[in-house]
Design a binder for these strands. Structure first.
Lengths: 145, 145
DNA sequence: TGTCAATAATTAACATGTTAACGATACTGC
DNA sequence: GCAGTATCGTTAACATGTTAATTATTGACA
């Protein structure tokens, strides 16, 4: 018996990459004028949504690996987008908070970002959009604790 | 009116990233013993499926950007996984073909890769799995020609 | 209290993603 | 033929993904 792999045109990993390309294209276009990257935008989004938090929690919520976040946070600190402070009790820990310049980027682009999301929701239809999020969620491995 | 962005837990870009993490984890584990990367595996898959082709077509089918493919192909040539030959008619073009060592990696891992795919299909159910691929396909921007 | 394991974060090393600039070849129309 | 343009591919520069090693700090416990 042969044991054919699925055609690459029906391959789940490739489909996920391509869908991500399609979704991120307009977002990247929006962000290009701000000078921040897609990952930095995710960090700002999470901090705006949930307030300041420690690095580990931030990495999980923004779906970034720890070493990536170390570099990203250091770049964002240098740009004045966030602040980093050592936990006084456990000096291994670090708290990260939104700085005014970071908050301004969120505020300035919240509306357009919402429009982009609405565009995709309209493309698929609300029901399909929610179905897609549910199915994707079932493939999510969860936090790597 | 406030204009809230979707919670990051229901954000499409983040959901796509996390789903990809979940899907790729077992594949990366399988590939770790071969010494090739996930992208190199995609290149081998496409070549195995459709035969040799020029660089541009390969980049599109494997969802790789051109500069990435330049580096990946050069590494794979050095490892003897593929061959690169100049088109004699149009000397700008380059044909890439599977070499025996590359074919062997495909053959040795075809079965396990199929099992991994079947696992995800079973997790979601066949109907949901096909629905997911269809919805992802509708977000695909298509080739960047 | 002194040693060892566990945790938070960084650093290192290499591969890829992304955009822009560049070089080489082919085509087009005059 | 030749200037202008388009196409294929590479290179450059920087940011991120990924795994492994390292440092700093804390906690457990004999």
């Amino acid at each position: 018996m042969t044991d054919p792999l699925p055609s690459t045109s029906r391959s789940l990993p490739i489909a996920l990459i391509r869908a991500r390309e399609g979704v991120m294209a307009p977002i990247r276009e929006m962000l290009s004028e701000t000078g921040i990257t897609e990952q930095q935008w995710r960090v700002l989004r999470v901090l705006d949504e949930a307030g300041s938090m420690d690095t580990k929690t931030l990495a999980n919520r923004a779906s970034l690996l720890f070493p990536s976040l170390t570099r990203i946070a250091s770049a964002m600190r240098d740009k004045g987008l966030i602040t980093q402070t050592r936990d006084t009790v456990d000096r291994r820990r670090q708290m990260i908070a939104l700085a005014p310049a970071g908050q301004k980027i969120i505020d300035d682009h919240r509306h357009r970002a919402g429009q982009i999301v609405d565009g995709f929701r309209a493309t698929l239809g609300t029901e399909n959009y929610e179905t897609l999020l549910d199915l994707l969620g079932r493939l999510d491995p969860g936090p790597r604790d």
